[in-house]
Amino acid sequence: MTIHLVGDLLVLAVTLRVFGQDVLMMLRRLAAAGVRTGISEIHRRPRTGKGDR
């Protein structure tokens, strides 16, 4: 293992430590938005074309 590889692994570890929580929060918000979209699609009424609701 060269010193460059060790340096790259350390930079990767620090980056994951610093930004890891932010990435997890962003993934959770994306998942919640997907769930909300799916629920709204389930509850949406089909259009009959006659103008009634």
Rank of each mutant, 00 (worst) to 15 (best):
residue 40 S to G: 05
residue 20 G to F: 06
residue 14 V to Q: 15
residue 39 I to D: 07
residue 19 F to D: 03
residue 33 A to N: 11
residue 43 H to E: 15
residue 43 H to S: 06
residue 25 M to V: 04
residue 12 L to K: 12
residue 4 H to F: 04
residue 7 G to V: 00
residue 24 L to K: 08
residue 3 I to N: 15
residue 51 G to L: 03
residue 36 R to F: 01
residue 37 T to V: 07
residue 39 I to G: 00
residue 22 D to K: 04
residue 7 G to K: 10
residue 47 R to Y: 05
residue 7 G to M: 12
residue 11 V to H: 13
residue 53 R to M: 10
residue 16 L to W: 14
residue 45 R to P: 00
residue 39 I to K: 08
residue 8 D to R: 06
residue 22 D to F: 02
residue 10 L to G: 04
residue 34 G to E: 05
residue 24 L to Q: 14
residue 30 L to A: 03
residue 46 P to C: 02
residue 26 M to G: 01
residue 3 I to Y: 14
residue 33 A to C: 05
residue 48 T to E: 14
residue 3 I to H: 13
residue 15 T to W: 13
residue 11 V to K: 14
residue 8 D to I: 09
residue 4 H to K: 07
residue 46 P to M: 11
residue 8 D to W: 06
residue 15 T to H: 09
residue 51 G to E: 03
residue 37 T to C: 07
residue 36 R to E: 06
residue 4 H to N: 12
residue 10 L to P: 01
residue 24 L to Y: 06
residue 46 P to W: 07
residue 1 M to V: 08
residue 48 T to P: 01
residue 45 R to A: 04
residue 38 G to V: 03
residue 32 A to R: 03
residue 15 T to R: 10
residue 48 T to I: 05
residue 21 Q to K: 03
residue 43 H to L: 11
residue 2 T to A: 07
residue 42 I to P: 02
residue 13 A to Q: 13
residue 1 M to Y: 12
residue 52 D to R: 10
residue 30 L to M: 11
residue 11 V to M: 14
residue 3 I to Q: 15
residue 46 P to Y: 09
residue 14 V to C: 13
residue 10 L to V: 08
residue 52 D to N: 12
residue 49 G to Q: 07
residue 8 D to G: 01
residue 6 V to C: 12
residue 37 T to R: 09
residue 28 R to I: 01
residue 34 G to T: 02
residue 17 R to A: 07
residue 50 K to W: 03
residue 50 K to T: 10
residue 43 H to C: 03
residue 50 K to I: 03
residue 30 L to V: 02
residue 38 G to K: 04
residue 31 A to Q: 02
residue 14 V to M: 14
residue 42 I to L: 15
residue 52 D to E: 15
residue 19 F to A: 02
residue 23 V to A: 08
residue 41 E to P: 00
residue 29 R to I: 00
residue 21 Q to L: 06
residue 39 I to Y: 07
residue 48 T to M: 09
residue 12 L to M: 12
residue 53 R to I: 05
residue 44 R to W: 02
residue 1 M to F: 10
residue 49 G to M: 08
residue 28 R to L: 01
residue 13 A to H: 10
residue 13 A to K: 11
residue 20 G to R: 08
residue 51 G to R: 02
residue 31 A to S: 01
residue 18 V to S: 13
residue 8 D to F: 04
residue 49 G to D: 14
residue 19 F to N: 05
residue 13 A to C: 08
residue 10 L to K: 11
residue 41 E to H: 04
residue 5 L to P: 01
residue 12 L to D: 15
residue 37 T to W: 08
residue 29 R to L: 02
residue 43 H to K: 04
residue 10 L to A: 10
residue 8 D to H: 07
residue 3 I to A: 14
residue 24 L to M: 13
